[in-house]
Design a protein around this nucleic acid. Structure first.
Lengths: 172, 172
DNA sequence: CTGATTGCAAATGCTTTGCACGCCA
DNA sequence: TGGCGTGCAAAGCATTTGCAATCAG
């Protein structure tokens, strides 16, 4: 069995409600998947999640991982986000912060999450002005690291290099 | 030879400069591709562009289309945008309107481009506050059609249905 | 029991690449 | 002429799907 992990009550409840409403079934694989996802607040690709699951002792297959991710997205427990790397990325933090946005550093690939109420308000206004009703919005900012530019060094960049030496499946 | 199309001088110049700087070569295929792209202000996937090229009489291969799209993106003549449909989409309108954003109607799939200087300013501020230097930003809003909701009808939805009957390669 | 769910492997679909040939500068 | 660009077909890769077996309710 999978290692026990503390999880937000809120999430469990939301999922149970979704499962009930849809006439779905609770399975060990689904439990394991949401436990592993919400044990961290990190973004992930389906493949990364699959690896984490293996490490945690789960034997859920890739197919099930993909199918469950679709389900969780539909239930609004995770969101698909576009990090610009050509893969599907999921973000588990929309439950707590439904309107946050992402900044991607093009120097080191670091992803910063941020919230801004002015931004939210403005998006809402613009959408209504255009004759629509806002549902979801995703803002991605690509930026350079100011620290790297001015002082020539950035701790995240060094970390990123170390990381890329360890990991095999990279894009390019 | 391909049908002659009027094209923004600006674009031709920008491309020529990029080609010169990079030590690249001007070829018939590249000319055809940018002519077809900028003959319209519509977004497109690589595949749609390939079809348009065929219709216009060009025989450029898919491989060349993909390679050239990468080049044009690098030259900032087009931008890759995320419309949330799982395919690469390119937008040729960033030359004239470098900071525009996209709203996607989930009812009919219509994409509305819009600009808002407040939004641009706010994004800029937020980015700097976080310690970064803004490069590109992409905001996608998913929304419902207000007209459809209130009056039960939306001209774009009807068009979308007609269109989907004609086109074969759809996502789902 | 019954239908939802899973795992496997095969299929799919978009995109990239290796290579030999052709063509621009 | 040198080497960039092209077309073709093959490869790559993430994701989806058909199907038979399994399991939850």
């Amino acid at each position: 069995m999978i290692r026990r992990i503390t999880m937000d009550k809120n999430i469990r409840e939301r999922l149970d409600e979704f499962i009930r409403k849809k006439g779905l079934r609770q399975t060990a694989q689904r439990d394991e998947i949401i436990e592993v996802i919400f044990a961290s607040d990190e973004h992930f690709t389906p493949d990364e999640l699959f690896d984490r699951l293996r490490l945690a002792g789960s034997k859920a297959s890739r197919a099930t991982v993909y199918r469950t991710l679709g389900l969780l997205d539909e239930a609004n427990l995770i969101h698909e986000i576009d990090l610009g790397d050509g893969q599907k990325n999921y973000d588990p933090n929309f439950v707590d912060r439904p309107t946050h946005n992402h900044l991607v550093c093009v120097d080191c690939g670091k992803v910063v999450e941020f919230e801004d109420s002015h931004l939210d308000l403005l998006n809402d206004c613009v959408t209504r002005r255009l004759g629509y009703r806002p549902l979801r919005q995703s803002l991605r900012i690509e930026a350079n690291c100011e620290k790297l530019r001015t002082s020539g060094g950035c701790p995240d960049l060094i970390q990123a290099r170390l990381k890329s030496k360890r990991l095999p499946n990279q894009k390019k």
